[in-house]
Structure formats: C-alpha cells, structure tokens
Design a protein around this nucleic acid. Structure first.
Lengths: 140, 140
DNA sequence: TTCATTTGGTTACTTTTTGTAACTTACTCT
DNA sequence: AGAGTAAGTTACAAAAAGTAACCAAATGAA
C-alpha cells in the first residue's frame, strides 16, 4: 500500500490553504458558511434535480418527479424551494387551469451544473472501481 | 429573468448524453449504480473527511473528529468504514497501547479529492452569492 | 347537474437515519 | 487500586425522509 508522496501532499495542501485560509472547515457552520451552502447543493436529491434541469431547459413539477426517479412529492417540493432560495433555480407559475409551474436553472445554476457535470463524469468513469472495491471488501 | 440560451442547453445536453447514454438517472439505483456511488462519496460528512485526509497525509480517529467539526463518533466510524469499503481510504491499526489507528487516502481517494477540491473551490468563490440570495428570498 | 380528471402541491403518519452521551477494552502510569 | 487513553460501540432521543391520502379550482363528460 503506497503512501501519499510528499509532492502530492504539498500540492493539495497549498490548494486547500489558498481556498480556506483561516476560516477552514474546523469551524462550526456559523463561521464556515461554505459547509452549509455545500451541503444543500451537493445533497443527493438536489444534484439530481439540478442535473435534469441542466439537461432540459424547463421542467414542470411532474416531469421532474418522473426524471428524478424515486423522489417523493414532499422532498421534491422541499428541495425546489431551497434551491430557489439559494438562487440555483427559478420557479414560474402560470394561472392556467390546471396550474402550470415551470422550473429552470438560473444563470448561477447553469454555472453550478457545469461543475457538477465534471464531478458526475468522474463518478461515471470510476464507479466500476468502487463497485469492485465493495465486492473485494465484502469477502473479508 | 434570462432563460437558458440554446447554445448552453445543447452543450450541456450533449455532455450528459455522452456520459449516461441509455443508462441515465431515470433508472432506479439498482440499474444506475452511479447514483449510489455518488451519494456515498458526496455525502456531507464523507466529503469533509476526504478533504481533511487530502490535507494531512495521515490522520488518527480523534484528530479526524477534531477537524471534521461537529461529527459524532458513531457517524465518523460509520463513514470511515464505508469509505474504506469503497476504496477511498485505508485503515491501518497498530497493536500499541492504547491502540493507534491511522487513516489515509488511497491513490484512488487522492484522485477523487482532486475533483472534490475543484467543486469546493467553486463553492468557496460562490457561497457569498448564495447567502445574498437567501437574504433576498427571506424578504419576500 | 353531478362526477371524474388534471396539476402542483400539502398533511398526517410511519420508518429510517442522525445525534447524544454513556460505556467498553486493555494496558500503562501514579 | 484507581485514573487515563485511543478507538470505537451501544442504547436511547430527535430529526429527516418515505408513504399515501387529501386539497383547490376549473374543465369535460354523462
């Protein structure tokens, strides 16, 4: 089992240093809002919602529910509210009957989905490794 | 309120198409393991653990608990087991008294932390916007 | 006229996941 | 003998998530 090389360690440490300075993750959430912001945006359901809104420019409640397989009305509606409050998505309701409500990414949400796609891409490439690791670990 | 431009939409859609093809997120988790793999790795506590292990090459249980502010023994121990099973971290126990257990990233974990750092960097840059959005939304 | 249908949710209730804090093991130091 | 230490575990309480029934308001069908 290889340990981390000095170079790798230093490189990563410098990056983290630059990013967090003195307000690092050791602080409680009140003093480290990044933690809170991140936990909303990278929540399992939120990421799926955002990915689907990156795929289709506009989606209505029931379409979202269909694409985000397995989500409940309750959680979908909660997450949409929070994501709207945080500025990732916008909600537009039209006074038709039955009512029509359209959700879409804001520009800010667009910029986030780009990042999220990179992470997802990594996941897509590497999930076979993870599954293989799980198998191996299961045998121990 | 700007809607998404055609270009942006098409670009993102192509990326998602390339990435997921027919086994997309509409499928239940059994058929879409990426969802499951991702929900483990991007869990709030897991990301903090991994970031800290990217910062320090080796950390013992109680140090991790100190850095990952607010985590409980129970959850820390659960997450460490899962992250080990998934291949991100390795656990080395030394039969001293009291026992010494060292956690560190595997090479695979190193490659993940790089991606995670990019996302975190985006969060660090953009969390002020999110906080501002929340304020604004709160007034409505 | 009465009844079923539609969308975008909400509500009450159950189950699962988290958090809290006390406890454990095994050896060493006072 | 009693206290301390590291790395957890365990029992119990609180919070979050899942389930499924319900709602409003108008439209179309019987």
């Amino acid at each position: 089992m290889e340990t981390v090389t000095e170079n790798q360690e230093v490189r990563t440490a410098k990056k983290l240093e630059k990013m967090f300075g003195h307000i690092d993750f050791r602080n409680p959430p009140e003093l480290c809002p990044v933690r809170d912001v991140m936990s909303v945006a990278s929540d399992q359901w939120s990421t799926l919602i955002i990915l689907w809104l990156g795929y289709f420019p506009v989606l209505r409640f029931n379409k979202l529910k269909k694409y985000v397989y397995g989500i409940s009305n309750k959680v979908l509606s909660q997450r949409l509210k929070v994501l709207e409050a945080d500025g990732y998505i916008s909600r537009n309701a039209y006074a038709e009957v039955p009512i029509r409500v359209e959700y879409s990414l804001t520009e800010f949400g667009q910029s986030y989905v780009e990042k999220l796609l990179e992470l997802t891409e990594w996941m897509q490439e590497n999930s076979p490794k993870v599954l293989a690791n799980r198998e191996k670990y299961g045998l121990l």
